[in-house]
Design a protein around this nucleic acid. Structure first.
Lengths: 198, 198
DNA sequence: GGGGTCATGTAATAGGTTACATGATTCT
DNA sequence: AGAATCATGTAACCTATTACATGACCCC
């Protein structure tokens, strides 16, 4: 049902999208990703840029256009998007938007093991999380406000709004969870079930 | 500040947690993970179980205890957790709970490129997402209700509640976004900026 | 003009996924 | 008994990350 993308790494999508605009070499791509703030949504390293360019080339989504040797810097290969590449961006983007895919946040794994910690310890660490979340929310809000003050339209900040929405939901969840863990019946039943451990 | 874990894969945490209970061989681990529903929070394949066992062994968190050859099945190696392993579980779990880590949901990447789609197309795909989200929420609720009917305590379902909280936040976000995209000024400004493309 | 640090890329290594293998067991 | 499927593991292959390399520019 979900046929595999030839280059599934999301970095590849961003790269293709930039090449829609104009041909570029990998290092330049990196600069744009950083400047546009997309590095906050995409996990990558400089090396992975070279890797995906290679993969995209093999897949036929981009093609090396020319190799510039500007006689100082190392040789830079400039890549251009192909027609298949253009098709891939459009199709992939639609799919990504239309179909939620199972994500695996680390916090969920930790939650599934929460019963291992004594109740008061659990409350303590979750309080720390809550504070950290508040900080991240604040930070993201600031980023958005600054960009907007610079005249950037809301549509180019929508991914940050999404981030904020998720962070706030998590903060509320954690607050509720802390309350539940503080109930004396929880402490009691935890003692009963987990009391017998070294 | 954040020293790297020797075995950063979250599957390793779940494995260690199960071994706290009793020594096991990898295949058995797989069965437990599936039966306990942790496979909904952790991304892994059967092979990666063998891999992490190897990594955990190298790291000194587990040790092969005995190799059972029950003269029918292939040889199975039973692993036991070590003291360092016990320490690692506890420390890792606390860290994971206390410190939010940057996650990279695919949807955020797609959102950052939303401006590439014509407004009506964007609305259409987001509506499909919204419906899919509603389905997932419903499904998760059912899972929780069934488990609870079986007598499972809330603390063992807390990760599912978290999933639900995130899904609902996303659904609300998408609903709002759709409304924004339907505004006629958005269609107008999209035409102006993006009208000039093939 | 030697010490950072940009700019740019390659190579080595570790991690993870897919494909393959093989002897039970169970079904019809 | 042959087909399907379970139980279990290994090997081959990609992917991604870390480490290494190298020439310019820039700063006192």
């Amino acid at each position: 049902m979900e046929r595999r993308r030839k280059v599934p790494n999301p970095l590849a999508l961003a790269v293709l999208a930039w090449l829609l605009w104009e041909p570029m070499h990998p290092y330049e791509l990196g600069r744009r990703l950083k400047q546009s703030g997309q590095d906050r949504q995409i996990h990558y390293t400089r090396s992975s840029l070279y890797m995906v360019m290679e993969q995209l080339t093999r897949a036929g989504f981009v093609a090396p256009q020319e190799t510039v040797r500007d006689s100082a810097r190392p040789e830079r290969t400039v890549y251009a998007i192909t027609d298949e590449g253009r098709h891939e961006v459009h199709d992939w983007l639609r799919t990504l938007l239309a179909q939620p895919r199972q994500e695996y946040p680390h916090f969920a794994v930790a939650l599934s093991l929460l019963s291992l910690l004594p109740p008061d310890e659990a409350v303590e660490v979750l309080r720390r999380r809550s504070a950290a979340l508040a900080g991240q929310i604040e930070e993201t809000r600031t980023t958005v406000a600054e960009a907007r003050a610079d005249g950037l339209a809301w549509i180019y900040l929508v991914e940050e709004e999404y981030t904020i929405a998720l962070l706030e939901a998590e903060r509320r969840f954690v607050a509720d969870l802390i309350e539940s863990l503080k109930q004396p019946d929880y402490a009691r039943s935890w003692q009963e079930t987990m009391g017998d451990r070294t």
